[in-house]
């Protein structure tokens, strides 16, 4: 029976690949997603957590996607970073928790990531809030004016 001590340990560090070429199929998937966005306005989200990347693959993918002109920081339950890649319409969403640990890493192929768009309920809430500030003495609760 082979035992642990029978297996030699040899340390060599030359010619070690920087990645395992798993980024390429994801780039093809993004290509298809961009086609769908361009022709049918259909958005796509890819959860990178579900992809069996080898060492270096994630870095390779992010490097090959590059960085575009929009970078967003989202401060809610920890600081998330979102940025458009060098390919317009391809966004990286890097959700972190309060300790700075990654809780999700996704690629969203869309015009604007869904989480960035203001929720309609938040719009009414903020209208109310601003209303209250402008008219502190008014007792009426709704800022929405019924036509």
């Amino acid at each position: 029976m082979q035992k642990l001590q029978d297996i030699a340990v040899r340390v060599e560090s030359k010619d070690v690949p920087l990645n395992h070429s798993n980024a390429t199929p994801i780039l093809h998937e993004i290509h298809h997603a961009l086609q769908r966005l361009a022709t049918q306005q259909e958005t796509t989200t890819i959860d990178l957590r579900a992809i069996p990347f080898g060492p270096g693959d994630e870095e390779d993918l992010l490097n090959r996607l590059g960085t575009g002109e929009v970078q967003i920081e989202l401060d809610s339950l920890g600081t998330s970073k979102l940025w458009e890649t060098a390919f317009s319409g391809v966004w990286i969403i890097d959700h972190r928790n309060a300790e700075g640990e990654r809780v999700a890493l996704q690629i969203e192929v869309t015009r604007v990531p869904e989480i960035i768009q203001t929720h309609p309920d938040d719009v009414t809430d903020s209208l109310q809030l601003l209303d209250n500030q402008l008219n502190p003495n008014r007792t009426e609760t709704s800022g929405l004016r019924e036509e």
């Binding site: 339950l77 959700h95 928790n97 809780v103 999700a104 929720h119």
Partner: peptide, 13 residues
């Protein structure tokens, strides 16, 4: 609401 959506995204993932 954004925090909740982020929370749900992380939970689904």
């Amino acid at each position: 609401r954004r925090g909740f959506l982020k929370y749900c995204t992380a939970t689904a993932s």
